[in-house]
Write a protein that binds this DNA or RNA. Structure first.
Lengths: 191, 191
DNA sequence: AAGTAACCATACCGGTCGGTATACTCGCAG
DNA sequence: CTGCGAGTATACCGACCGGTATGGTTACTT
């Protein structure tokens, strides 16, 4: 009957962990469920018992990725981020650079969007929500910094942020994040 | 021996045309060479005689896409674009919206990057060059508009432009291009 | 003692993948 | 008239795709 199934078991977690690496590094379509099961030291049977379908596993991967990024960002801000002001906004870019740590694959959500052509894929909603949360984070940080019209400026900062990721990864422009930080300073008005 | 082969034949052009639609609309990995050959009204044999491999066909697709976009932009600017000033920069965004015309698949180059995981894919160079040409176009338009420091500002405008595309397609933010135009006005300084 | 959730192992399904092989027809330039 | 480039048609290859089936083994509950 399959039912909804609970993926939160030892094998389920391992599958999700392995899928997280493989989907991101090689692309969703390029990675088969056989490989994931093998790399996770389990079987396809268990994978399907936990997640029901590849599409559902993909959606779980995207949700987990969002979760992990937000945890990473929070920890980064706590440990290394400035305490207040515009620098706190710029620190998100620092965190993003550290988050990728050498990989040139870029934003997992943008990449996933390219492969989820069917409009009704369960992962699509995760992507939309993720980008909106990202934008919301910038708005919140600007508001905390006491910037007037944080809503409008947050949207602009977010666009620069997204554009920098594209330019770094697709365009191979190593200086993209430095340019982005300068652009954000210019947009917000230096303080 | 295959050799380099000349794809510029009736069948070759038809294959490239069909591949252009299918690769963009469904994704590169999701479209097989069998389907392309069939839709082009030819055979896989001819496809391989003309292009040699799927990878080479993909690279040709990306090159052709860049070529077509630049033709489209030039024609758009000639027919509908303003004659001078900052409005000419903003018109690139208008052209981009028209270029997509309803499709929510977003930037073909960004999507292709997500699927070309192998670092040595012949298409990667096309992507890098495409983004650099795009940036160069903004720099050139700003310089023509008499804006000082067109190099720096062009880079910033380009980041906003790329970010808007991501936010519209991945984030489903319908207002992204309007926000981008406002952001660009703010960056360049209204004039 | 019975039930159940979680797991492993293996085999199978129809279909598609990129790519190659063989053999033929047509039109054109030397 | 000959050779060649471009095209057609069909068949084949091993590998992999997502997904299902069968069967058996633990370990914890009730």
């Amino acid at each position: 009957m399959a039912r909804t199934a609970n993926p939160d078991t030892p094998a389920g977690r391992k599958i999700l962990e392995v899928a997280g690496v493989l989907f991101y590094e090689r692309g969703i379509g390029a990675v088969g469920v056989d490989l994931i099961a093998e790399q996770a030291g389990t079987t396809k049977k268990t994978l399907y018992d936990r997640f029901g379908s590849k599409d559902a596993l993909v959606a779980a991967y995207l949700e987990r990725r969002e979760e992990r990024w937000e945890e990473f960002l929070e920890e980064w801000m706590r440990a290394r981020g400035p305490k207040s002001g515009l620098d706190r906004v710029l620190a998100v870019l620092d965190a993003e650079e550290a988050w990728w740590a050498g990989s040139r694959r870029g934003c997992a959500f943008v990449n996933a969007h390219a492969e989820l052509s069917e409009g009704d894929h369960p992962g699509r909603a995760v992507l939309r929500e993720g980008k909106r949360r990202s934008r919301g984070k910038f708005v919140a940080l600007l508001a905390e910094a006491g910037v007037p019209d944080a809503e409008t400026l947050g949207a602009r900062v977010h666009m620069v942020y997204e554009g920098a990721m594209v330019n770094l990864t697709v365009g191979g422009m190593a200086e993209a994040f430095d340019e982005a930080r300068e652009a954000i300073r210019a947009l917000v008005g230096e303080g």
